[in-house]
Design a protein around this nucleic acid. Structure first.
Lengths: 163, 163
DNA sequence: TTTTCATCCATGAAATCCCTTGATAAGCAA
DNA sequence: TTGCTTATCAAGGGATTTCATGGATGAAAA
């Protein structure tokens, strides 16, 4: 698909009474590039209590990746259930965001992502993650420790925005 | 972006109240070549109390390497967690610099890099490092001793600039 | 009508851009 | 060399733009 986009940067955004939250500017630009429009894809994470976000290009790539895995499984003579793999890609919500990067988190996504009144966004190269900051600090696995430092910086040392 | 380059040269730059600092001219040219534009990538060092810098070509390589690793894992039927790999590359900040080589070190980078009002830049072939000069002299491991001599030269023997 | 939802406008704060300035180094002529 | 001119550079400061968020407006659904 289009360009190889790198999701990077982090920041904490408020979630208002309407469920609206804002993608930090740096991530927003990447999403925009990937989608070719003001639209973002949000999904449940397959194993962690958080949400996953990405743009249109990555969504299309999910489809291609399943095919790649299937092909290589066939070559090796292994099993590969494309339906099973495809299901995980089924609950992806594509939403338009405003020029400012703000979009509505549906109640269901808020529920499964354990999001309350703040969302911690951070880029993970191929996509980005959305966590409830409290949940992230308490429950995220140790491989996220460096990112926890960053979050703690936002929450305590910094006044505001995310770079 | 274009080819990978060799980062060499060193120098000490001031960091002003806005967090602005200047890449020494010799390094700046390499970064420019690597990025194909006036843009530099800065990240936390994985183990040392300093920052790492490089250009767009090196960053794209990181991204491409993840995809390569995944492809080869799929081919072998192995697992490869792209998310995990992506996290380590996530806190890379890409910033534009002025024609003079000046750019803004975000408060967070300053914090994690222990940078105060001066930054010591030096090339390390595949990338370059940014240290607080005092921290570098006191805490850098012994394999940097030769570079410490260079820094002492900038701080004492030389008038100013870095070549 | 009442509610819901998406789009649009408003605002204060903060980050980015750009022009200025003072200083140093480099080039050149005598 | 010496003195003068020009180019380059680091640093300062201010004006403009961007950003996140609060609220308003209007259309469609209940």
């Amino acid at each position: 698909m289009s360009a190889l986009v790198v999701y990077a940067g982090s920041g904490v955004s408020g979630v208002d009474a309407k469920g609206r939250t804002t993608i930090p500017a740096e991530l927003r630009d990447s999403v925009q590039q990937s989608s070719g429009a003001n639209s973002v894809c949000i999904a449940r994470h397959s194993s962690l209590p958080c949400l996953v976000g990405f743009g249109g290009a990555e969504r299309m790539k999910l489809r291609a990746d399943i095919e790649t895995q299937w092909q290589s499984a066939v070559t090796r003579g292994d099993q590969f259930d494309r339906e099973l793999a495809g299901i995980s890609a089924s609950s992806i919500f594509e939403t338009a965001f405003e020029a400012s990067g703000r979009f509505v988190l549906s109640p269901m996504l808020k529920h499964f992502g354990k999001i309350d009144d703040r969302a911690f966004f951070f880029g993970a190269t191929t996509h980005f993650l959305l966590w409830n900051p409290d949940v992230f600090l308490n429950d995220a696995p140790t491989q996220f420790d460096a990112v926890k430092d960053e979050l703690n910086y936002w929450l305590h040392e910094s006044g505001k925005r995310g770079k």
